[in-house]
């Protein structure tokens, strides 16, 4: 159910602009890896290369290797659609489909995969909403529009939608940045539960959040504006926050810049 990600020497380009340079890292299965770093350091861009979502933007391409267990995500015969079915994603702003009910939002991915059986859909919708800690709040109004929920509930709905298709990996791009502290706490609790089943990579601007939820932390930085972002170091979260090897990491986590 959960797979390891191995990245080797990855460069990310948007047309001629090199956005991220020379990233190599390993993401362990059933763990939470947090990406931290100042704005524009390429952490979100890099995250999107893990399910080829960067290709949605015109001119987006990579050099290097991303392996999901033994599968090369950028092999010539690899369909990006297939990659995204294995590597799910949750976005910065909750984006439930506004024209769909709560139920249909969660069922959307399964329906794309051709599941039509009402009974199996019902089952998956219920387990996914339960896994996303949302079931009790919405079980009496599954037919109501998903856009009618609060921001935090919408984000949990998006998580339920993402995990309903049973991905191997769940990518989260600043999932709490549009939410209030209570909703943030609910999402963080959820992340800690979900890591028993999924490999989770979370981008966050909030260093306390990284310290609270993640097992490992990667610090991204860039030398100067206009230069490509790069990975400064990655290690166990306790080590990165207490005893980083790089001066830049130390400066960032102690609040000297960024």
């Amino acid at each position: 159910m959960a797979k390891r990600i191995d990245v080797t020497d990855l460069n990310v380009y948007y047309s001629a602009f090199k956005a991220v340079e020379g990233v190599s890292m390993t993401v362990e299965p059933r763990s939470v890896t947090a990406f931290i770093g100042p704005s524009g350091c390429g952490k979100s861009t890099f995250l999107r290369t893990l399910n080829r979502m960067h290709e949605v933007i015109a001119g987006g391409r990579v050099e290097g290797k991303v392996m999901l267990d033994n599968q090369d995500l950028y092999a010539p015969n690899m369909d990006p659609v297939a990659v995204r079915r294995t590597v799910g994603m949750v976005f910065q702003r909750p984006n439930p489909f506004p024209t769909m009910s709560i139920y249909d939002n969660v069922a959307a991915g399964l329906r794309l995969n051709g599941v039509k059986n009402k009974k199996s859909l019902d089952g998956v919708v219920e387990t996914s909403l339960k896994s996303a800690n949302l079931w009790n709040e919405v079980k009496d109004r599954l037919g109501k529009p998903g856009a009618g929920l609060s921001g935090g509930q919408q984000q949990r709905l998006c998580i339920a939608r993402a995990i309903a298709v049973q991905p191997q990996v769940l990518l989260m791009d600043e999932p709490c940045s549009a939410l209030d502290p209570i909703s943030t706490l609910a999402i963080e609790d959820l992340v800690s539960q979900l890591k028993n089943e999924f490999t989770i990579v979370i981008v966050t601007h909030n260093m306390q959040q990284a310290a609270r939820v993640s097992d490992r932390t990667a610090f991204f930085n860039l030398r100067a504006t206009g230069e490509p972002g790069r990975l400064v170091e990655i290690g166990d979260t306790t080590k990165i926050f207490n005893n980083p090897t790089q001066q830049a990491t130390e400066d960032y986590i102690s609040g000297r810049f960024g």
């Binding site: 979502m53 799910g88 984006n95 024209t99 959307a108 794309l112 998006c158 939608r161 993402a162 298709v165």
Partner: peptide, 29 residues
């Protein structure tokens, strides 16, 4: 059609046409 909706569909593993069917067409209805 908001980019966020389109990306939401694509991230679920929708093909281009499936993305249009689940987001663009309902939004434009």
């Amino acid at each position: 059609t908001p980019l966020a909706h389109k990306e939401g569909a694509l991230a679920l593993g929708a093909t281009h046409w499936e993305m249009i069917r689940t987001t663009v067409l309902p939004f434009g209805r």
